[in-house]
Design a protein around this nucleic acid. Structure first.
Lengths: 215, 215
DNA sequence: GTAAAATTTAACTATTAGACAAAAATTCGA
DNA sequence: TCGAATTTTTGTCTAATAGTTAAATTTTAC
């Protein structure tokens, strides 16, 4: 895609949050919204929100605010909401199961379309409507199904080895739930979600900082 | 606690990651480590690592590197690893179950010590070794057990209402897995873990950026 | 004595926050 | 009903803050 404006990464991370809230507003029958009102809901500074929006050109009217429908329409295009992205889930343990049932594609453009595991009890079954494959077939399946995104919820000990296979299969992005910081070539993106880390950081902040500033 | 040096938040977020890797190194029998080596493992720039460490005063030796044991000892104190932090889990759905089984206290100083749900089948049972309480008793139990951290995995529709109760019970930090950006007083900290958002951001980055730069 | 590696300082980049003019919408008086 | 005054709210500019990376310096190990 490689779009026109290079927007800051910090802004990019806020886009899905804007999108989701705008959808909520539309469902609630609201036709317009101000940056202040948005700010209350999504907890970013109103000036930051206007700044973010202005990267995409003027989308609001002074004295009026933003038109919910057209703003939503705009974000919908930016976030490619019209195309469904298939995602592979690798590792069907506790967390994998939960993510599978969590069902991303409700209200979003993503869906887990293939699961991989080593458990022979699970292999070749359908779980939550999704086929489970032998992890030994990972490279072939991912390649054949043209899947570009994977969710990694395997034991830490196997994380790097399986990551290597994912890379080999041509994956472009990994949502990594293992605590291991896996090594990948620079054309592959890793987003780490480290639950123990999140909790420990939270505790650290509570014990060491007075005011409320986690960004 | 309110410790001496006000370190940047970005640094604070890296501390648990350093800690975990240092523990791994110690277990592996390594006695010393350089910033470059650490950098390979945790994927932060070596200069950033040295900078981080230097906030706490000189911990390494020039020409030698850092002594694993003493560095670990130091981080262990900073992160309060000697005291066990009790955490409440609110909402025992798919994700809640997974987090409960995930068992934070293996290799860490945190443990889920109370679970809350509305399901009468679950209330007053023990799940994964942890008692499940009626969510109606949330305020009392959390207050009585002096729990200061909660993990929130309830349906979005109830998130604010339950957050209010948590605040009322005196909670200090919330790890929020719901997509709602909850409103809390400024003395309460919220750390949002938004899985749909993480995936969407990942997809956006892959489609719109060439190089590998998510921080 | 040489090389390795931390520390320190500085430069640079990114991000956020604040302030305010301009534009649109709304209100209110006649 | 019309239009001037007031309010709302954006968009943009500037300043401040935070964070990262690089370069120079110093210390220590071998």
């Amino acid at each position: 895609m490689m779009n026109d404006p290079i927007i800051p990464k910090a802004t990019a991370k806020r886009l899905p949050i804007y999108y989701r809230y705008l959808k909520f507003l539309l469902d609630a029958g609201k036709t317009r919204v101000s940056s202040t009102e948005l700010s209350d809901a999504v907890k970013f500074d109103a000036a930051t929100i206007r700044r973010d929006f202005s990267y995409f050109g003027a989308l609001g009217k002074r004295g009026y605010g933003y038109d919910v429908a057209s703003l939503l329409d705009f974000f919908s295009k930016i976030l490619n909401q019209d195309t469904l992205t298939n995602v592979a889930l690798v590792g069907l343990g506790n967390l994998g199961q939960a993510l599978l049932n969590f069902n991303f594609h409700k209200n979003s453009n993503m869906r887990v379309s293939a699961v991989f595991d080593i458990d022979s009890e699970l292999i070749n079954t359908i779980q939550a409507g999704v086929p489970v494959y032998d992890i030994a077939d990972l490279v072939n399946q991912i390649h054949d199904q043209r899947i570009e995104i994977a969710i990694l919820t395997v034991p830490q000990a196997n994380a790097q080895e399986i990551t290597d296979k994912l890379v080999q299969a041509g994956i472009k992005g990994i949502l990594n739930f293992t605590p291991l910081r896996v090594t990948v070539p620079s054309n592959v993106r890793v987003q780490n979600v480290d639950l123990t880390n999140e909790l420990q950081t939270l505790i650290y902040f509570i014990e060491n900082y007075a005011d409320n500033e986690i960004k």
